[in-house]
């Protein structure tokens, strides 16, 4: 049971990293990214292939995966210069699918649907079998913490204010002298880097990756996490990721108690449950469980607090 819990927490950690990255891109800057699975896959396959096929050490392959996510994010964001927001969203969706289809079809390199077997692990041989999953959980948790600190520092800084201004109205931000494109490229690159990191961590955790893991559904789960938790609020999405993962995993056992559900029905049912949850939460709390907080500065009328909780206007 402990082993199961540790594994679930580790998977929740991957979700949290992806959700934090999405919150930076969409929640704070207003850039829609439907290609999360693509960045996740890019990170996973970069690190996986470098270790499995070229024999790179994990300590070098994982940072390379992060760099790959960074570069891919930045390049895609460059397209936002000439694209309206909705078209940009479709580009990201396309990127996600392209990544998956490359993994599926370039099977001489990626092993395609057979799955890529990855033997290399971080800290391999340094800990015994019993302890290793916990060490890995700590590693994942550290990356979650790092992502949280980076995204939260940006949110609280004047940069966060500027990013939210771009989210609200990019044209006005631009005529006020903000280099909107530069900010968008930066944000997408950082988000892409963290998504790449999540992919690499995932790859060396499960040690066998195949393209069907990186379906667009992954993106939807992460969107759910951010929306349920509260877009723009980094604490909220941690809760959101926890809830989505609990439902995904928790419902796995319903089949044991209800005979009429076969595996196929059950997997459909889980998706329905998550959709229902989203609708209920958005009906009851429009800004998510923890909505974005209103910034107030010292000497503000709501004295004493630096930030006050408000519902969405």
């Amino acid at each position: 049971m402990t082993a199961y819990l540790v594994s679930m927490l580790t998977f929740t950690g991957f979700f949290m990293i992806l959700a934090l990255a999405l919150n930076l891109q969409w929640g704070m800057t207003g850039m829609v990214n439907f290609g999360i699975a693509g960045f996740y896959a890019l990170g996973a396959y970069t690190s996986g292939l470098l270790t499995a096929k070229l024999g790179w050490p994990v300590g070098l392959a994982m940072p390379t995966a992060v760099a790959a996510g960074f570069v891919a994010g930045g390049l895609i964001a460059l397209l936002s210069l000439r694209l309206r927001e909705d078209f940009f969203a479709i580009v990201t969706l396309g990127f996600g699918e392209i990544m998956r289809l490359i993994a599926l079809n370039e099977d001489e390199i990626t092993e395609g649907p057979r799955g890529l077997k990855i033997d290399a692990r971080p800290f391999a041989g340094m800990f015994d079998r019993e302890l290793y999953p916990i060490v890995y959980l700590i590693l994942v948790a550290s990356v979650v913490a790092l992502a949280f600190i980076v995204v939260e520092c940006i949110r609280r800084a004047p940069l966060g204010r500027t990013l939210r201004a771009i989210r609200e109205d990019d044209v006005v931000a631009e005529v006020l002298g903000k280099n909107v494109l530069l900010h968008r490229v930066t944000v997408f690159a950082i988000g892409g880097a963290f998504m790449g990191a999540a992919g690499a961590l995932y790859a060396h955790y499960v040690q066998n990756i195949s393209p069907e893991v990186f379906m667009p559904m992954v993106a939807i789960f992460i969107w759910m996490s951010v929306i349920v938790g509260g877009a723009g609020n980094n604490w909220g999405l941690l809760i959101g990721a926890g809830i989505v993962m609990t439902i995904l995993e928790g419902t796995r056992f319903i089949g044991d108690f209800v005979d009429i559900l076969d595996a196929e029905k059950l997997s459909a049912l889980r998706i329905i449950l998550i959709g229902t949850l989203l609708i209920i939460i958005l009906r009851v709390k429009q800004g998510g469980l923890l909505p974005e907080q209103r910034f107030t500065y010292k000497g503000s009328q709501e004295s004493g607090r630096t930030e006050t909780q408000t519902s969405n206007a």
Binding site: R164, E292, F295, T296, N312, A313
Partner: peptide, 8 residues
């Protein structure tokens, strides 16, 4: 910028 305060 609607969801920024006047001060922001």
């Amino acid at each position: 910028f609607g969801r920024l305060t006047v001060l922001e």
